[in-house]
């Protein structure tokens, strides 16, 4: 029924629908904001910057040859020990000079099925024996561990410390700290659960200072490098310069990146 009353208001059903829609929108919005946790990620930003600068300092003190790409002469057993830990398997690229193993440029890439990585001890196993005694170039990306965190184990039970860059993906080193002396702790004396941020220690470490170096889930640092020529362009031959790039992922889409020029002395 149509009415021509100019003072006609909303019906009860219209008001109810409107309120219900607003309620749904507000509740969903509140939950989304709560789950988004963006504040925590912003906190990680400044820590990612700090970590990156500290890692830059460590890389600048490393020797030229211990930074990938690495040059190796393949031994008879086909095994090569690489200089860095936590290598990302999919990023390994092995190049040879040419089919005969001569020439200046490392332009022949070895197919992926021709090598394996023993991730436990970072040993590369080259299958087949046609490259033995020849020079090969191995390039890869690897994950840099956190700069390390130190804390005092509580005097009372539970004897546990919480880590900052959690959850723990991989523990690198657990050390007892006394002044400037760092003593490794046996893995029997502590326990941790992967994807948690807590390490439990034996009672004998109560009140002692512990330093933990680990790969954390909150901030992930990936290091890659390549040879560059005098025009600062990527080179396939051996030059005296390497360009090292550290990429820090701290949970947001945008990463933090830094480049380091490493020159052979």
């Amino acid at each position: 029924m149509k009415t021509n009353n100019p003072e006609r208001g909303f019906t009860l059903i219209e008001v109810m629908i409107c309120i219900a829609i607003i309620a749904i929108v507000v509740t969903t919005g509140a939950k989304l904001i709560k789950n988004y946790n963006w504040m925590a990620r912003e906190t990680h930003y400044s820590d990612a910057v700090r970590q990156m600068k500290a890692q830059k300092k460590i890389i600048s003190t490393k020797s030229f040859n211990s930074i990938p790409p690495e040059i190796h002469i393949l031994p008879k057993n086909g095994k090569i020990r690489l200089s860095n830990n936590n290598i990302i398997k999919d990023t390994i690229k092995i190049s040879t000079r040419d089919k005969n193993g001569a020439g200046r440029h490392f332009s022949q890439n070895l197919p992926v099925e021709n090598f394996n990585l023993d991730e436990g001890n970072n040993t590369l196993v080259i299958l087949g024996n046609n490259l033995q005694g020849k020079e090969i170039l191995v390039n890869y990306k690897y994950i840099l561990p956190d700069r390390g965190e130190a804390a005092t184990v509580p005097e009372k039970s539970p004897y546990e410390i919480r880590l900052f860059n959690s959850p723990i993906v991989k523990l690198e080193n657990v050390e007892l700290v006394k002044g400037n002396k760092f003593t490794p702790i046996s893995s029997k004396d502590y326990s941790y659960k992967e994807d948690s941020n807590v390490i439990c220690f034996d009672k004998k470490y109560a009140g002692k200072v512990i330093r933990v170096t680990y790969i954390g889930g909150a901030i992930k640092s990936v290091c890659s490098s390549e040879f560059i020529d005098e025009k600062l362009q990527p080179a396939t031959n051996l030059t005296g310069m390497k360009f090292v790039k550290i990429v820090e992922n701290y949970g947001l889409k945008h990463n933090i990146e830094i480049g380091i020029l490493k020159v052979k002395k």
């Binding site: 008001v15 309620a23 507000v26 509740t27």
Partner: peptide
């Protein structure tokens, strides 16, 4: 019944607003 339904809906709405406000303030 209509009045009760409206009160329940308003309470739900206000509950959401208060929870949102409290969460934001806490954060």
């Amino acid at each position: 019944i209509e009045l009760m339904i409206v009160i329940v809906i308003i309470a739900t709405f206000l509950g959401g607003v208060v929870a949102f406000g409290a969460s934001t303030y806490k954060q």
